[in-house]
Simulated scan of single mutants.
Amino acid sequence: MYFHTTMPDEFTVTPWEVKGKVDYDKLIVQFGTQKITEELKQRMKNLVGELHVMLRRNVFFSHRDLDLVLNDYEKGKGFFLYTGRAPSLGMHIGHLIPFIFTKWLQDKFNVNLYIEITDDEKFMRNPEYTLDQTRSWAYDNILDIIAVGFNPDKTFIFQDTEYIRNMYPIAVKIAKKLTFSEVRATFGLDVSSNIGLIFYPALQIAPTMFEKKRCLIPAGIDQDPYWRLQRDIAESLGYYKAAQIHSKFLPPLTGPEGKMSSSNPETAIYLVDDPKTVERKIMKYAFSGGQPTIELHRKYGGNPEIDVPFQWLYYFFEEDDNRIKEIEEEYRSGKMLTGELKQILIDKLNSFLEEHRRRREEAKELIQVFKYDGKLAKQMWEKIHE
């Protein structure tokens, strides 16, 4: 299959599955994206004054046309952000990574953001789910997304089943440009796939055409195939090819392979996990790069490259570059034990989740603003996208 990426070392990255230990350099070559260079990072730093921890540490590592987005911004043309989520029964820490980075981009560049909640696709892709279920999950997930702290006047959060009237005309034009063979190859569909899933990519592409500016999409690199289809057809419809900035996958608790799964509780920390649950999961399931005994660990040290608690701290939870270097050195030398490293992560996670839950409660008062009544939301409900 054209977009089904399986490497000789046996890792797989598709929009619906990530398996094995991902070699991100190989993935850049395979997907035909560009590496985010030090030069590009310096350009961003010059424009906004600093770099987000996930850019400094190459968690966001690959792009398409990020240089053109920065050109447009420098020329005063601007750009807009687009990301989204297929709702699920409970979000985990991994789901928040693109949203946290997207908030930083919105804050720094002061741009509009569109967040698509694909309650339709989730329903169509899973035979056992009802539409009522996916809509109910959408509400819960939207609260978690609002809790990240987006600008309510410049952010529009919409569910496909609600906003379909406004975006159907542009979706139809997109759909007419996509062939069944392209969609089937990109998304692993076959003759038993329901026809909703064949049409659905048009709806995910539609928000890239909400403005006559370049669209920048921060997302996991597994979502890249959607945007390749968009880039094939955008200019023929009078719009820009969508630009992307791709993140790596936060490794599951159980080891450095694959990505976290909502359906596999021991792989993930959920946003609703209480402090005791977080402690139990990290201590019991978090894959360690340490030695089997304290004596051996003191002698040989640990391996942070495969140690999941260290990786989580490195990705996001320890933002201080000097401190993360210190932790790495102490762990490698054997001075810091596995249990001590895990405890650092437990404390960081619990303080993060406590703050997140507080903001999530406040989000219940803001959901109408982000979906219907905010400045951008109001404009969007008055607009039919042609």
Rank of each mutant, 00 (worst) to 15 (best):
I117G: 00
R359K: 15
A202M: 02
G94D: 02
F249N: 07
N194L: 03
H4L: 15
T161C: 09
K154D: 13
I115F: 04
I164H: 08
D23A: 13
P252D: 07
F80K: 06
L271H: 06
L96W: 02
W227K: 08
L237A: 04
I282A: 01
E295A: 10
Q311R: 15
K371Q: 15
Y82M: 07
D107P: 07
T6Q: 12
E50G: 14
M54E: 00
M209Q: 01
E182A: 05
N350V: 12
K342L: 12
I367T: 08
R135E: 15
F210P: 02
S351V: 11
F3R: 09
R360N: 08
K154L: 09
L341M: 02
E354D: 10
K378A: 04
L337T: 01
I195M: 14
H4W: 10
T254D: 13
T186E: 08
K299I: 06
N166G: 02
D144S: 09
W312F: 15
Y331M: 08
P201E: 03
S261D: 03
G76C: 04
E257L: 01
P304C: 04
P8C: 06
S262L: 00
T208V: 13
M283S: 07
V272H: 02
I198E: 02
L81A: 03
N126K: 10
Q291F: 06
Y82H: 03
E318W: 06
Q42K: 13
M91Q: 06
G188M: 03
L51Y: 01
I198L: 14
N141G: 02
I205S: 01
N194R: 13
K335S: 06
M167I: 12
R298Y: 09
F79G: 01
Y239Q: 05
G220H: 11
K212G: 09
R214S: 05
F61C: 12
N58S: 11
V48A: 07
Y270P: 03
G90F: 05
K35V: 14
I174P: 03
E340Y: 06
Y24I: 14
W312S: 04
F287I: 05
Y114K: 05
T102P: 05
E382G: 15
E235R: 15
Y285A: 08
Q230W: 04
T186Q: 02
G339A: 14
I93W: 03
E362A: 14
L345D: 00
S261V: 00
L105R: 06
Q204V: 07
N110R: 15
K213V: 12
M209S: 05
K75N: 09
G94W: 05
A175Q: 13
T33Y: 00
I327M: 01
F187T: 04
V53W: 00
D160C: 04
E10M: 07
L229D: 00
P275I: 01
D153F: 11
E329L: 12
T338Q: 12
V59I: 12
N151E: 08
F210S: 00
T267W: 05
G94Q: 09
N58L: 00
L337P: 07
T37K: 14
F180E: 15
S181D: 11
R359P: 09
E295L: 09
Y285N: 10
F80L: 09
E318Q: 09
A377M: 01
K364Q: 08
K248E: 05
F109C: 12
A147D: 07
P265V: 03
G334M: 05
E211D: 12
